[in-house]
Nucleic acid binder design. Structure first.
Lengths: 128, 128
DNA sequence: ATCATTGTATTAAGCTCTTAGTACAACAGT
DNA sequence: ACTGTTGTACTAAGAGCTTAATACAATGAT
């Protein structure tokens, strides 16, 4: 999955989310070394300062730690990562429920919409 | 539902979404007169210019129309409103599916998470 | 006719975000 | 010892968002 950045929100914030995603999905495994700030920035077509800001945030959250001159590493505590994954999922679900109910749908109807959309995506993939 | 504004995204954009919500849920019925720009701005604790920008966007989308000096009115075409509701719901579902799958969950697991969270919310409401 | 209210427009200031460019100390590899 | 890479820090500029403060023409109510 490449970097997907929108101008509608702070880029550094989107970078935080997408690096989190790469960590919880194992693309950046626990304890592994991250690409350098400059490398990540170039890959995302973003200024190094912006990437640095995102990484500082991740470091403040305890998800990565920097070794000053040898690079930056993902935390070795796999439990922290699993917990993050659960939190992200729970927030996603909670936000979705809040929004869909604000629109006037019940949770049951939301589940039906979800099934319908999933089936539609499945068909699209099959056709491809 | 009061105005819920975050500093993380452009306020005018959030105002657009929340006014859309008030329209599709019938709080601002089709054909009805909206509060004045200044009134809405004061209610949302926002600068009139910011509210004006949101309303201009809604007008460009054909959801409201202004009568220059007598006020602004919700479109009378209820079909437009119903269509917006469906579109908003579909986008919500699609985005949720995309994000939850990016986290590593299948659509089925997502549905289970949804049920679990809904049950949790139900319990919370019962306790209150 | 008068006056308040309507949408709309304009200018200025302050803020955050982003980019660009530069710089420095600490370490690894040679 | 030297060189390149590392994270980190700083300044400057430009863009967008928000607020503040006005201003104006058109209309409705009185």
């Amino acid at each position: 999955m490449a970097w997907e950045l929108s101008a509608q929100r702070p880029i550094w914030s989107q970078l935080v989310e997408q690096i989190q995603l790469r960590i919880v999905t194992g693309r950046y495994p626990a304890g592994s070394r991250l690409p350098s700030v400059r490398e990540l920035a170039a890959d995302a077509s973003v200024n190094p300062n912006t990437m640095q800001r995102a990484l500082s945030q991740l470091e403040a959250d305890g998800l990565v730690c920097s070794q000053r001159t040898s690079g930056r590493f993902v935390t070795e505590q796999e439990e922290t990562i699993m917990e993050l994954k659960k939190t992200l999922a729970k927030n996603l679900v909670r936000d979705f429920l809040t929004r869909i109910e604000a629109l006037g749908y019940t949770a049951k109807e939301a589940a039906q919409l979800l099934e319908a959309e999933d089936a539609a995506q499945f068909r699209t993939k099959e056709d491809a």
